[in-house]
Design a protein around this nucleic acid. Structure first.
Lengths: 150, 150
DNA sequence: GTGCGTCCTCAAGTTCACTTGAGGTCAAGC
DNA sequence: GCTTGACCTCAAGTGAACTTGAGGACGCAC
C-alpha cells in the first residue's frame, strides 16, 4: 500500500502517533496490521502512515477485546467496514448488527450472575443442571485461550 | 490429602465422574487442582476422589471463565470459601460480594456498547477521548492474555 | 559527519489456560 | 494370565495476543 491517494496526506498518522492516540503499543499496531485488521500506506522512507479512520477501527478492536471477544471474531465483523474509499454510517451499523445477539446474551448472563450470585451459589444450583448461568456451549469469545481439541 | 475423613465416602466422585458432571476434561481438573482451585483426596490406588462441593467450585470457575475473568482472580475469590469443613452460605456470599462492583461495571460497559454501537461507532466518538466505552485502565480480567511489560 | 529519534523487519520469547503424549499402576473380567 | 479401562505423573506442545530483542535505515540538527 504505497499511498493509494497519490499524494502526502498531512493528516495521516505515524505509528507512534497512532499508538499514543489509540493507547496501544507500536508493536500492537504492527501486529494488528499483520493480522489484516488495519491497513497503512508507506512513505518513501518505508514508514507506515495511517488514515485517521484506522483509529476508529483500533478503538473498536480494543473495546471488543475488553469484552473477551477474540480477534478472529472482531476481524469478521470489521470485514463489513471498508478500509479504503467512503465509509458510510451504514457500514458500521451493519457490522454492529451482527454483534447484537451475542451482546444481549452476554449482558443477560452477567445480570444473572450478579442477581443470583448470592442465592444461586448459596443454594447450590450452580452445581450445574438447573443453573441458568452455566451453559458451556455458547459462542463469540466464550471459548477462551489455550489448546483446543482437534 | 489421603482421605481426611478417615473412611470411604461413597458419594465422592472420581475424576471421570467429576469431568462428566462438570462438563470439563479430566486434564482440566488436574490443572485446576495443581493451581489450588479445587482439592481431592486419594484412594489406596492413588486415584482422586472429589467431595461433591468441588462440583460447585468448578461451576463457579467455568462461569467466571466465560465472563473473561482470569483464573488468578477466581482463585482469590474462592479463597474465601473453605475446601474442607462446613461451608456456610455466608462464605459464598462473602466471596461474591467482592465481585459485585466489577460485575456492575462490566454490565454497564456492555449495555453502553449495545445501546451505542450504532450511534457511537457511526459518529466516531469511539475515536477515543469522549467515548464512555473506551477506558483502557480497568481491572478484573480485562487485561487479556499475552506477554506483559516488566 | 556524527548523534539522536523514529522508524523498519524478522525471529524468538511470554502468559494464560489448557491439551497431548509417553510411559506406568491397578482392579476387574474373561 | 492377559486384556481392558480408568486412573496416575511429568514433560512438552498449543493458540491467542502480544512483547522483546537484534540489527539496520532514514532524516534532521548541531
Amino acid at each position: 500500500m504505497r499511498n493509494p491517494k497519490g499524494r502526502a496526506q498531512p493528516n495521516d498518522l505515524s505509528v507512534g502517533e497512532m499508538a499514543q492516540r489509540a493507547g496501544v503499543a507500536v508493536s500492537t499496531l504492527h501486529f494488528y496490521e499483520a493480522e489484516g485488521l488495519i491497513q497503512s500506506w508507506r512513505t518513501s522512507a518505508n514508514h507506515r502512515r495511517y488514515d485517521r479512520r484506522m483509529l476508529r477501527r483500533v478503538a473498536v478492536i480494543r473495546v471488543a477485546q475488553g469484552l473477551g471477544i477474540p480477534l478472529a471474531e472482531v476481524g469478521k465483523m470489521l470485514e463489513k467496514v471498508p478500509m479504503e474509499g467512503a465509509v458510510r454510517k451504514g457500514h458500521w451499523s451493519d457490522a454492529s448488527e451482527a454483534w447484537r445477539g451475542a451482546l444481549e446474551a452476554r449482558i443477560a448472563k452477567l445480570q444473572a450472575l450478579r442477581d443470583q450470585l448470592d442465592h444461586c451459589i448459596g443454594c447450590g444450583c450452580l452445581s450445574l443442571e438447573n443453573c441458568p448461568l452455566y451453559n458451556p456451549n455458547d459462542s463469540l469469545g466464550e471459548a477462551g485461550p489455550g489448546a483446543r481439541r482437534l
